[in-house]
């Protein structure tokens, strides 16, 4: 009995700490994001957030849906494997609204990005020293970008 009388202040302290813990648990329950932990230790809505990012590259299928002629031409050439936007850049806006006209790429810079000779490039890959190869002439003068190889 005596010990309980002399430990009264400790019981008060324990109650105070207990109240703090309960308050923490109540607040935690109230503000924890909805569904947290459903698929793992994260906010499931974050998945939707990332999936909803805007698209800039329309993708090959979208281009080919409206431009089957180019697709057909390209299919027979060396560049068949390339998607349109690899050279033309991101065109989702154009795919949404054809009135938004894409800017055509600058040919020499575009071609040499891949085909300028570089000692780190794999040997199988066709590459030229532009200055020696064309002497300043635009690549287009001889090669059609959609079907680049002669006699194809």
């Amino acid at each position: 009995m005596r010990i309980w009388k002399d430990a009264g202040h400790l019981i008060r302290l324990a109650l105070l700490l207990g109240m703090l813990v309960v308050a923490f648990l109540v607040i935690r329950r109230a503000v924890i994001p909805e569904g947290f932990g459903r698929y793992g230790h994260f906010r499931p809505a974050a998945l939707e957030d990332v999936r909803a990012h805007p698209i800039h590259f329309a993708g090959r299928a979208a281009c080919e849906a409206c431009h089957p002629d180019v697709m057909e031409l390209k299919q027979k050439g060396k560049h068949a494997g390339l998607s349109c936007e690899a050279c033309h850049g991101p065109l989702a806006k154009h795919a949404e609204d054809p009135e938004v006209k894409p800017v055509l790429p600058k040919v020499v810079a575009l071609c040499s990005r891949c085909h300028e000779a570089n000692s780190a490039r794999p040997k199988w890959f066709p590459q030229v020293n532009t200055k020696e190869h064309s002497g300043g002439e635009s690549c287009e003068a001889c090669h059609k970008p959609h079907k680049p190889k002669f006699g194809e």
């Binding site: 998945l47 999936r51 909803a52 990012h53 299928a61 979208a62 849906a65």
Partner: peptide
């Protein structure tokens, strides 16, 4: 035409997203 001639049904679904310009979850 493109949809029915060239694309699989899966790609058709993707195309709709692009052409509608919708930025939304799948």
């Amino acid at each position: 035409c493109g949809k029915y001639l060239f694309l699989t049904s899966a790609a058709t679904a993707a195309l709709d997203f692009v052409i509608d310009g919708k930025a939304e979850a799948a």
